[in-house]
């Protein structure tokens, strides 16, 4: 019996190794939980294009499975066979926030975290015509009349929302949150003066520099895209929130295949042509691979859970 088990183990190991060596033997699919043409889709297609090269001529296909705020796609990846042929894009904190506000068939442990590519920090932003010139003045007004300051969000349960909540908690201010349908709607309302401020991601503000005034970025360091804008941390509020986009595989992926994919994705990130293309698309890159990415996911999960427990949004 013992011998049999050893044989099985050896065989399994050997076949595993063989699988990893042959990988990829067929096209790899990247599942995107959003429609073609969106930010996440464009990232997946860009990464996919260079991943083909990094894996030595493999074929990478992007499959869009939009719906339910990305949940259909996230669920599909979590439930796929962990053979390295199904990967998916992963959006933080959205993907994990979803697991709190509705029934989901996955959680933070359902994935093998391969690499994160994009980190787009949230901001505190007002219209250019706004009376608030600084973050301090803005927060003072929010404290003086709690709830009088309206903050437009792209939705509840996303990074805009969490950013606003964390800013409120750090400063003791109180906002009235107004969740629009998407970032573009929130931005239009902000420009039209219908809400006093917004917490949208920095990339949403870059082509509107004449109409919007970014008071602070909610990041550890100033953004290379807007070095003139201070971080909230510099101004005395240690608040960090951002939208992250990376690539994951289902949990239980063979460690050798996972390593191979991580190396390939790291190689993708080092290609100058890739960096150039991402910059053109206005995607701020913050490359993190493997365990460090898994830790970020865990941390984002904790933030989402604590906000859900303190102030459930539905």
């Amino acid at each position: 019996m013992k011998r049999y088990l050893i044989t099985v183990a050896v065989a399994a190991f050997a076949s595993g190794a063989a699988v990893a060596q042959d990988y990829p033997a067929k096209p790899i699919e990247i599942i995107v939980g959003y429609s073609a043409g969106g930010g996440t889709d464009v990232m997946a297609r860009t990464v996919g294009k260079f991943l083909e090269e990094a894996l030595g001529g493999a074929s990478v296909v992007v499959k869009n499975m939009p719906g339910a705020g990305g949940q259909i796609g996230f669920t599909e990846v979590a439930g796929a066979k962990p053979d390295g042929y199904t990967l998916g894009t992963f959006n933080l904190p959205a993907a994990l926030a979803l697991t709190y506000d509705r029934a989901a068939d996955y959680d933070v442990s359902s994935y093998t975290y391969l690499a994160n590519f994009v980190e787009d920090p949230n901001t505190i932003v007002v219209a250019a015509s706004s009376e608030f010139e600084t973050l301090e003045a803005f927060l003072e007004a929010a404290k003086a009349d709690p709830g009088a300051i309206t903050v437009g969000l792209s939705s509840l349960g996303g990074n805009d929302h969490f950013g606003a909540n964390m800013m409120a908690a750090a400063s003791g201010a109180e906002f009235t949150l107004v969740p629009f349908k998407g970032a573009a709607m929130a931005r239009t309302a902000l420009m039209g003066g219908h809400v006093a401020a917004g917490t949208m991601a920095l990339s949403q503000t870059t082509s509107f520099q004449e109409e919007l005034r970014v008071l602070a970025v909610l990041a550890e360091e100033r953004s290379a895209f807007r070095p003139d804008v201070p971080t909230a941390k510099e101004l005395g509020y240690d608040v960090q929130m951002s939208s992250l986009r990376g690539i994951v595989a289902p949990a239980g992926l063979d460690p050798e295949i996972a390593a191979k994919l991580r190396d390939a994705l790291t190689a993708v990130n080092e290609m100058p042509a890739f960096q150039e293309m991402m910059a053109e698309q206005g995607n701020p890159i913050a490359f993190v691979a493997g365990d460090a990415f898994a830790e970020i996911a865990q941390a984002q999960n904790d933030v989402a859970r604590s906000i859900w427990e303190e102030t459930p949004w539905k």
Binding site: P66, A68, G69, I72, T75, D101, S155, L156, K314
Partner: peptide, 15 residues
């Protein structure tokens, strides 16, 4: 709030 209405648990209907 994203509360489900008349979806009968179907993800296809959530949007």
């Amino acid at each position: 709030f994203g509360t489900d209405r008349y979806t009968f648990g179907q993800l296809e209907l959530l949007d």
